[in-house]
């Protein structure tokens, strides 16, 4: 990780390259696949398991992480030459914690129902390893521009896994998908359910946390089957 950071830093310092240079574009696209925070680095699993019961919650969680991630990365990157080395972890923690508290307060004020459902998990963004990891590994050594892109890339890498898992879980667990702002949209007619004389029953296991792990596992499996770079040599 550290050599990668140094390389990027060198490249950035050599000449002021455009924001969307090839290297910087890679910052955006890499976390989506090759270095996905959840499926490859296996960070931030805790929240991925807990709040993927409904699509709506996953969307709000992803947006919250995106906000905290961008804010944290840019702020730490701006301060990177001023932060004393010895307390850098504490500084990062304070920056993240402050942003998370702001997100939490805003959710409580404007989206109280969702805030209630996300409950402690918004607070737990503070301990989300993805954010801390990117601050330490990237923002501390790079300019705000690339850090901003890196934040978006990693938050998106986190978000798409969350969304994929929550769609699968909600569709098979509740027979519906809750699109943000539209409420739950049912896909099957009520008459198809066993309770109403049909043949279909929602899979309750899907709603329970263990199933999120299985779904993430399946995503990792598919990803590695398609992207052979990720398979470790023994």
């Amino acid at each position: 990780m550290s050599t990668e950071v140094q390389e990027v830093e060198k490249a950035v310092e050599k000449k002021s390259e455009p924001l969307f240079s090839k290297k910087n574009r890679k910052l955006l696209s890499d976390p989506l696949n090759d270095s996905n925070p959840i499926t490859v680095q296996v960070l931030g699993i805790c929240s991925a398991l807990a709040i993927t019961v409904q699509l709506q919650q996953a969307v709000i969680m992803s947006l919250s992480v995106l906000f905290v991630m961008i804010g944290g990365n840019v702020i730490v990157s701006l301060l990177r030459n001023a932060i004393p080395d010895r307390i850098r972890i504490i500084v990062q923690l304070v920056v993240i914690a402050a942003l998370v508290i702001i997100v939490n307060e805003v959710l409580k004020a404007f989206l109280p129902d969702i805030s209630e459902k996300l409950s402690v998990f918004v607070g737990l963004i503070i301990t989300n390893c993805i954010i801390m990891g990117r601050l330490e590994a990237f923002a501390l050594g790079n300019k705000p521009g690339p850090s901003f892109l890196d934040a978006i890339g990693n938050a998106m890498g986190y978000a798409w896994i969350l969304l994929a898992v929550s769609i699968v879980r909600e569709l098979f667990g509740s027979g519906a998908i809750s699109f943000p702002g539209m409420g739950q949209v049912k896909f099957l007619p009520e008459g198809w359910f066993i309770a109403n004389g049909g043949l279909y029953e929602n899979n309750n296991l899907m709603i329970l946390p263990p199933m999120a792990l299985v779904v993430v596992g399946v995503i990792i499996w598919i990803q590695r089957a398609r992207n052979t770079k990720l398979i470790e040599e023994n």
Partner: peptide, 15 residues
């Protein structure tokens, strides 16, 4: 950047 004084100053200002 690594002196005690600066570290304290930074921590206090941040808080």
């Amino acid at each position: 950047k690594n002196s005690n004084g600066y570290t304290f100053f930074f921590a206090i200002a941040m808080v």
